[in-house]
Amino acid sequence: MREQASISQASTTATMVEMRGVNKWYGDFHVLRDIDLTVARGERIVICGPSGSGKSTLIRCINHLEEHQQGEIVVAGMPLTQDVKRIEQIRRRVGMVFQHFNLFPHLTVLENCCLAQMWVQKKPRREAEERAMQYLERVRIAEQARKYPGQLSGGQQQRVAIARSLCMHPEVMLFDEPTSALDPEMIKEVLDVMVELAEEGMTMLCVTHEMGFAKTVADRVIFMDQGQIIEENAPEPFFHNPQSERTQLFLSQILGH
């Protein structure tokens, strides 16, 4: 009964992700410092900052790929606890796209998209394949469905990874530097898919250095440095009128030329 209640409550809640006073250490190293962040349903957020600033760690805490030591994280109305069942429950609602794609190299593109549907959502193969093809078409790669990931280019692999995630019908998508490992000519095909996704109203948290993408789709841009959220603003004021010195320095470095 309680399970049911929490799910129905989850699907109606207006707040998708909430982090309150989150702190995390790697040994002695304090990676996340007093993070407070609220993401509304349908909101698109871009997180940027110098390397080592904790931005990847922050979004990896949301689906518990990293464990935080202090503070509270609530995803789709469910508090994140140590309980394995709860963690898996949250992960089923949170999609994630990685910098290095992390497709399963021993399975075809189609199998990559079907595996979790069949084993986690217990769907019959036919239904899973149908849905997989639907999403592969949306990321414009359906004709490669029978190939292995190793036969695709980086940009194609990343689009498959996005489709694989979408097949699980997530309520929020986490992107961990999705274009950083790509050759320049492939970045656009991935960003196009992400822009479409944003336009359809998907809740997104995106760690990226693609400032063009941030300007087009983000509702809010968050700047992090040394484990802290330094500045948080709508893209327009963020880029044209950054408040903090560190933000100004960072922006001048990446937009400098």
């Binding site: 999609g95 986690v120 990874a161």
Partner: peptide
């Protein structure tokens, strides 16, 4: 690579 297990975990696999 660790990413393989992470990707599977992120899809909700136990």
């Amino acid at each position: 690579p660790r990413g393989q297990e992470e990707a599977a975990a992120a899809l909700g696999m136990g």
